[in-house]
């Protein structure tokens, strides 16, 4: 560090002096050798072949590990959005028509890189049966920045969803409440599988959506 910018003073120091001297001599010798062989022929046709080759070769040998490394490091970019995971929540009967939303853990098999989990709790959703054959399921992941939204039922404030991180709040139908602060869109509904509903079971496609923006975009 400190020595670097004082290289010019090196001759002051006797030992370094000799060192420098000798290495300079060697360099001169090397030059002389090149001289003996005469100028490289490349120069005569005006094309600096050696320089070009050095740079090209240097670039190539650096590029190989870099490209391989980057391709691997950037691999998540090529995996695309996940289509979601099908998961069973409950039976249709266990939800009362018009009853309050119920929290469910989404439990399904899932693989994460090298591990495949059986029956792993993946996340939290709220399910509400709004009509005889209609169930609405909200993801509990806050559309603002992804904290977990809570369902609350408080005296004067009534039923609503509330996010304890930055106080976003949502009506029971998932849309933004008047006193919402931050979220730009309502709670994300999750697809409820129609055929399963016919059979009296509530199945959903569990997926995540990009937080912070006003449109709902799967990630």
């Amino acid at each position: 560090m400190a020595g670097t910018d004082t290289d010019d003073d090196l001759p002051d120091v006797p030992m370094s002096d000799t060192l420098k001297q000798s290495s300079a001599d060697q360099l001169k010798d090397a030059d002389a050798e090149v001289d003996k062989g005469g100028h490289p022929p490349a120069r005569s046709d005006g094309f600096p072949r050696r320089e070009f080759c050095s740079i090209a070769l240097g670039g190539a040998i650096v590029a190989v590990p870099t490209v391989v490394g980057l391709r691997v490091a950037l691999s998540p970019l090529f995996s695309g959005a996940s289509g979601g995971i099908l998961a069973r929540l409950t039976t249709l009967d266990s939800l009362a028509v018009g009853g309050p939303p119920q929290a469910f853990k989404v439990i399904a098999d899932k693989s994460d890189a090298w591990t495949t989990y059986k029956d792993l709790p993946l996340g939290l959703v709220y399910a509400q049966r709004v009509a005889e054959r209609d169930v609405v399921v909200f993801s509990a992941s806050c559309p603002h920045a992804g904290c977990a939204v809570e369902y609350r039922n408080e005296g004067d404030r009534g039923e609503h969803y509330y996010c304890p991180c930055h106080e976003s709040s949502f009506k029971t139908d998932g849309s933004l409440a008047p006193d919402n602060t931050q979220a730009k869109r309502g709670l994300d509904t999750l697809e409820v599988i129609e055929e399963k509903l016919e059979q009296g079971e509530v199945w959903i496609r569990f997926q995540k959506f990009k937080a912070g923006i006003s449109e709902k975009k799967a990630v």
Partner: peptide, 11 residues
């Protein structure tokens, strides 16, 4: 995606 190595947090 590059940061978390995929679409969701994991290994």
């Amino acid at each position: 995606q590059i940061l978390i190595g995929g679409n969701e947090a994991g290994h």
